[in-house]
């Protein structure tokens, strides 16, 4: 599903964010990216949805080398990749269901399909009753569920999560991880950057550790350290 071959990413010509990284991730895998701040975790994720382009190497997503993808095709790549973040990136002026619907409107889905899909996905993330609330009326965990609903409503092949529990307390984080685990069980490949030792050690999934842009460990059913 995802394959990196000798990928190097350098920012502003000096700061090396990723150095000769080679990774192979199969369809349906759940992968943790760990490592200190600045070790290249976010860059790793940003390379996968073409927010960034590598200086060297090849990145295959679903069989295509996305480093060579022409700009006008990038939106179609991103329709197969859901993204969630530490800061949720919800639109404060839209209700919960409007936030989710926005993702479908933006890719031109017909209104009837949107009306059907949005309540379904909100039920799946456990927010069926809060469809008409505004984001600032929700707790952090609930807001992250909305952003997961938005990322997953289009049933992407891959879900990228950049420290999704970074702003949440441990109890809430467990709920979010259960949700991501459920999504992973539907066959969606999940790549998650995290600092949360507890989560990594409990879930016992594949762990890729980065240090100053190098992959220093790649371990099936791994732990944080």
């Amino acid at each position: 599903m995802i394959k990196l071959e000798n990928v190097t990413k350098v920012y502003k010509g000096e700061m090396v964010a990723l150095r000769e990284a080679s990774v192979d991730i199969d369809k349906g895998e759940f992968v943790f990216l760990v490592g200190p701040s600045g070790s290249g975790k976010s860059t790793f994720l940003r390379l996968l949805n073409r927010e960034e382009r590598p200086e060297q190497g090849k990145i295959f997503v679903a069989g295509k080398d996305i480093a060579e993808l022409p700009g006008y095709k990038v939106p179609y790549l991103r329709r197969n990749i859901g993204s969630i973040f530490q800061d949720f990136k919800l639109l404060p002026s839209k209700t919960v269901s409007e936030n989710v619907a926005f993702a479908l409107e933006a890719i031109g889905r017909p209104r009837s399909a949107i009306r059907e899909a949005v309540p379904q996905i909100l039920d799946l993330v456990g927010l069926g009753k809060k469809a008409n609330n505004m984001p600032d009326e929700l707790s952090g965990g609930e807001q992250q569920r909305v952003s997961i609903a938005r990322a997953f409503v289009n049933r992407p092949l891959i879900l990228l999560a950049d420290e999704p529990t970074g702003n949440l307390d441990p109890a809430t984080s467990v709920g979010i991880m259960k949700l991501l685990d459920r999504i992973n069980r539907t066959g969606t490949t999940v790549v998650m950057a995290t600092h949360d030792r507890g989560i990594v050690d409990t879930m016992r999934r594949r762990v890729i550790e980065l240090d100053r842009g190098r992959i220093v460990r790649d371990q099936a059913r791994g732990v944080y350290e």
Partner: peptide, 16 residues
């Protein structure tokens, strides 16, 4: 810019 960021993330086409 927030809407635009989200649109880019979910794969809205350039012209959209």
């Amino acid at each position: 810019r927030r809407e635009i960021e989200v649109m880019r993330l979910v794969g809205a086409s350039n012209w959209f």
